[in-house]
Design a protein around this nucleic acid. Structure first.
Lengths: 205, 205
DNA sequence: GTAGCAAAACGAACTAGTTCGTTCGGTATA
DNA sequence: TATACCGAACGAACTAGTTCGTTTTGCTAC
């Protein structure tokens, strides 16, 4: 995230640290409350910045939201690519781990999906590029023989995503979150995710 | 929905039609904009009712939101039970069809999930009862031999839900909704959902 | 049928608080 | 001096929720 703090022998001269702090605070705020529920004053306060600065860097609330969404998508994509692994079940496992340790990302995506088109113009190229890359990966695995080639790679990609995030969206697990799952349950769920993907991709004998 | 309009020979004396209209308008509004984004004035206007009446029937915005959520969960559960079918893949297919024809239900659940605990007190008994019933169904299918008994029935239930709703939540499909899928794609997706569930449950030989 | 009544509803104004976005005087720093 | 920034305030629009006088409606009794 902040590897460029350590480049060369220069003093830690981050570019526009205030802007960065605002973006970081906005990330927390938007992930928690969405676009309509987020409060500009709260973002500025939590960023230890003034609103004057916030509006010096971002025109609207929506523009800040878009910036956060874009940042999230980039980081999410990078993290997923880094921890992709060789096989599709491994990939699903890594995705699951990421979803568990960083729920903000999927929350942000869900908010963006719901608040939707009219207010936000999401970085479509980014999304489509990343999506295309994942689909290419699936096709490669199909060619290699570890994934049943009869699957529509596009569908398979979506299915894996649905399996990974099922506990975030299933009503009983999501709404009845009075007691969140313990360590043991999280590990067991991970195993089920991996197993489910294994079963999906198993080539017909 | 309005079967009681036809009971006995009495004139169509609906109970509290205004309240019903408000609830219906609120349903549309909340599904579209969520709790924070919904506007009370808009609900009243679309219900052809006055705000005075709205607040005569519901104390807060949040209470109206809860009422809508509860209504949605009940109708969703009923519809799912009616169209359940015998097997789990059939069940998943029916669920998928329902999600496609009535996206409001899943939207509402997603909103409730995101806006979450502090503002809303969802009808937990309802959710848990319905969840328990579905899990019982899975267990019965496992006993009957059509579903691999080594699955945690709770996990399997969540996985099926995730598979059914994967296209609603997958970023590329959800955010890049400039062109929504055509009839053909919807049918193809349904087939993939059913096939995925079939593969999940196939008992080990 | 019509007079009377009470609940339901309208509608328009109003309160009080919130929220976005702007402005501006003052401070530190390079 | 110029840039980045703070902090405090401000305006204008918006929003949840309230109030109230008036009208409609359903029902009952005469």
């Amino acid at each position: 995230m902040n590897t460029d703090e350590f480049r060369s022998g220069l003093p830690p001269k981050e570019p526009e640290p205030t802007r960065q702090r605002i973006l970081e605070a906005a990330r927390v705020e938007f992930a928690a409350h969405g676009l309509a529920g987020a409060r500009i004053d709260r973002i500025a306060r939590n960023a230890s910045a003034s609103k004057e600065r916030l509006y010096a860097y971002y025109r609207h609330k929506a523009e800040l939201f878009s910036a956060v969404l874009e940042l999230n998508l980039i980081e999410f994509a990078n993290s997923v690519i880094q921890n992709a692994g060789e096989t599709l079940p491994e990939f699903a496992g890594a995705l699951y781990d990421h979803a568990v340790t960083h729920p903000e990302y999927l929350r942000m995506i869900d908010w963006a999906n719901l608040e939707g088109q009219e207010a936000i113009n999401p970085p479509l190229t980014l999304i489509n590029d990343f999506h295309a890359e994942r689909v290419r990966g699936v096709i490669a695995l199909q060619r290699a023989g570890s994934v049943d080639p009869s699957w529509d790679p596009d569908h398979l990609n979506a299915l894996v995503f649905g399996i990974v995030s099922c506990w975030i969206h299933e009503p009983a697990s999501a709404l009845a979150a009075d007691r969140e799952p313990d360590e043991e349950a999280i590990i067991a769920r991970r195993a089920s995710v991996v197993r489910a993907v294994e079963r999906l991709i198993a080539p017909a004998p």
